[in-house]
Each structure stands twice: as C-alpha cells, then as structure tokens.
C-alpha cells in the first residue's frame, strides 16, 4: 500500500494534461466562431476544458486515500507490438498465409509457457482456418500468397 492513491492521481493529471493540450491546440489553430454560428474550434476547446476539469476531480480526492500501483507488463506490450506490426507489414506485401502464420507464432512469445512446436502448430492451424474462412468462405479480396520480388 502506498500513502496516496497514485494510480488515480496519475490518471487524473494525465487526463487534465490531454484536455488542456487539446483545448490550447484547438484555440490557436481553429476558428471559435460565435454562439450563433459556431466554428470548428468551439467543440474541441469546450471538450478539452471539461476533460481537464474532470481530470482534476479524479486526481484531487485521490490525495486523501491510500492505494496501489498496478504492475506494468513490458514483455506482452513489446511482443504484441511486433506481432501486430508484422501483420500490417506483411498483409499486402506477402499475403494472408505468411502474415497470419508469423503473427500467431510471434504472439505466443508474450508468455513463456507455449513450447515452440505448439506455437508452430497453432500458427499452421490459424493459417488454415483464416484462409478457409475469409478467402474460401467469405471471398475477401486479400491475396493468400504473394512474392514481393
């Protein structure tokens, strides 16, 4: 236990920062207009200010209570990013089959409990499943295999 609820303090102040930044950016870049004819800036500026106020309302009461900070899972965050990135890169250059296979296999590395053989089998199974469902069944306009060179 920590002496203050830092989770809500960080969350509230973060929202206040986002709201204030959005309001200021909109204020300097978009026309506010008048109440009769509102410009594109009116809504973002008002929403930004309201968000900033709510952020303070979240952070302020948290000063007077204790709380815990949740742990951050670094490994899944990195592995998932690589996995999704590889899908985005491969889907149009090499096609659905390799993209699905590698995305699946890479994703299993988020945890240490999947043996490599099982990961490869899972990857092959997912490739077959998605190919038969999306290309064979639904006829999505995605190529299943491409040779980029």
């Amino acid at each position: 236990m920590l002496d203050r609820d830092y989770r809500d303090i960080v969350a509230g102040l973060g929202l206040t920062a986002i709201g204030a930044a959005a309001a200021l950016y909109a204020l300097f870049n978009y026309n506010l207009g008048t109440f009769t004819r509102m410009g594109p800036g009116m809504m973002p500026v008002s929403l930004g200010i309201i968000l900033a106020v709510f952020g303070l309302l979240i952070a302020f009461p948290a000063l007077s209570r204790s709380g815990d900070l949740p742990p951050l899972k670094i490994r899944p965050m990195i592995v998932m990013s690589i996995s999704i990135f590889s899908f985005a890169l491969m889907i149009e250059s090499v096609g659905l089959v390799p993209a699905v296979f590698f995305t699946t296999v890479i994703a299993t590395f988020s945890e240490t409990r999947v043996p490599l053989v099982s990961a490869l089998v899972l990857g092959a199974g997912m490739t077959l499943l998605t190919w038969s469902l999306f290309i064979l069944g639904l006829g999505l306009p995605i190529s299943s295999f491409d040779w980029p060179f």
Partner: peptide, 22 residues
C-alpha cells in the same frame, strides 16, 4: 495462452478488411 494469439489474428484481419488499409 493458445486462445489469445488466435484472437489477435482475427482482430488484425478484421481491422484490415474494413478498408483494406494496413
């Protein structure tokens, strides 16, 4: 740990197929 990679793949294909935009 066998389900989430499968879910992830479906999410990727789903997101891509809406506008065919990586």
């Amino acid at each position: 740990h066998y389900l989430y990679p499968a879910i992830l793949v479906f999410l990727c294909i789903g997101a891509y197929s809406v506008r065919a935009n990586p």
